[in-house]
Nucleic acid binder design. Structure first.
Lengths: 210, 210
DNA sequence: TAGATTGTTAATCGATTAACAATC
DNA sequence: TAGATTGTTAATCGATTAACAATC
């Protein structure tokens, strides 16, 4: 069925990577077909919700059969935009920035860290897994001369907005923000936040209920 | 008003750390009082929602006045359980585990990394910012002999469930999971996930809409 | 074919927003 | 007091679940 992308709610969108994870896992375990019911049991969702979710993008299943795991995985692969190669740069070459650069897991889905940037002279000139650390002053030139699809911000929160403004000025449309602050952006720029302290406080909050 | 903790929805709970962030920021900028309306403008929520959220925990405001920033911040501090000291250990001393150990930002809210654990002999015996890296074989003994409130799992996904089972066996009730897998736990054990790849794929998904 | 399971519509549930009386 | 703003109830909206006809 044709892939028609209507409005997709935040809730549905957030479940897509999870489907992708489970389907990738099942495929590598040689599972060929799955019903919404069985998938619901594995994932802790309802079968109804799963069918509703997939039908936001068109029907991928077959009555009486269920879903072909490889096919469905491929569809979600496409939906998530993992067919594209995405270069990203990491701003802030501290521990977290270096951890992102060192992590190779994203590469097999086409996400490649091309460079890091920092203000610290002791970091500038280093190379992390072959990825160079440049002076932050070279940021704009670098973006202008290279294909950069995304920027990860791993600076202290005090610098995050300033950095964001700068890269947005360079035409960047997608920011992966690790700084503990909400970044203000124009409507055509996407920010995906990873607020580690929010996550930790949530864990702490729930510990109180035990 | 008395602090009565009824059922708090996931949605409300997820907003609490954000309130805490904004209130901390406002307090340090010397702002003394705030109305739900003004807070809503700063945070991009509705005033109604903010009042509903706070009233899950009892009323913290005053008609005609609004909310006292310091007081409200303190209330949320308590709600999040940040009055308690929480020791945690990090399992998996790779880049991400080391980044967590190196990050000092959690400490001022009472979260202290006490030890790291790994299987890699080249890492065992090291010390990260004074925090020792132990052999994973010492995990159970360490937990038995020390106060450990939380465990962060930063291992490859293949090892995560096994590690989780082990620490749950030692009585740990709170897991901060960074491995790209959903961990199965008994109902009295809390898992807070930080799935970086899910987050990245979400960003990629939304880039397709631009 | 009969059984299974989808795609999709309808019903329910929960979260957000609006409204307003209470009150500082 | 009059004005402002909360706490709270009622209305709306959206997301989840249930149901079932379509069909493989």
């Amino acid at each position: 069925m044709a892939r028609e992308k209507n409005y997709v709610s935040e809730a549905v969108m957030r479940r897509m990577p999870k489907y992708y994870r489970y389907l990738t896992d099942m495929e590598s375990n040689g599972i060929e077909r799955i019903s919404s019911k069985e998938l619901s049991q594995r994932m802790g969702l309802t079968a109804s919700q799963i069918r509703q979710d997939f039908n936001c993008f068109g029907g991928f299943g077959q009555q009486g059969y269920g879903y072909n795991v490889s096919e469905l995985r491929q569809e979600i692969h496409n939906i998530l935009g993992l067919t594209n190669d995405n270069n990203f740069i990491v701003i802030g070459a501290g521990n977290l920035g270096q951890a992102l650069a060192n992590y190779t897991g994203f590469e097999k889905e086409g996400f490649t860290v091309k460079a890091l940037f920092d203000i610290n002279p002791r970091l500038i000139g280093l190379s992390i897994r072959g990825i160079p650390v440049y002076d932050i002053d070279e940021l704009e030139t670098h973006i202008a001369r290279n294909q950069v699809h995304m920027v990860a911000i791993c600076t202290p929160k005090e610098k995050a907005q300033e950095i964001a403004d700068k890269v947005i000025g360079c035409g960047i449309k997608a920011i992966w923000n690790f700084a503990a602050i909400d970044i203000a952006t124009p409507p055509d720029v996407i920010v995906e936040n990873v607020h580690l302290s929010d996550s930790l406080y949530t864990l702490s909050f729930r510990m109180n209920d035990l």
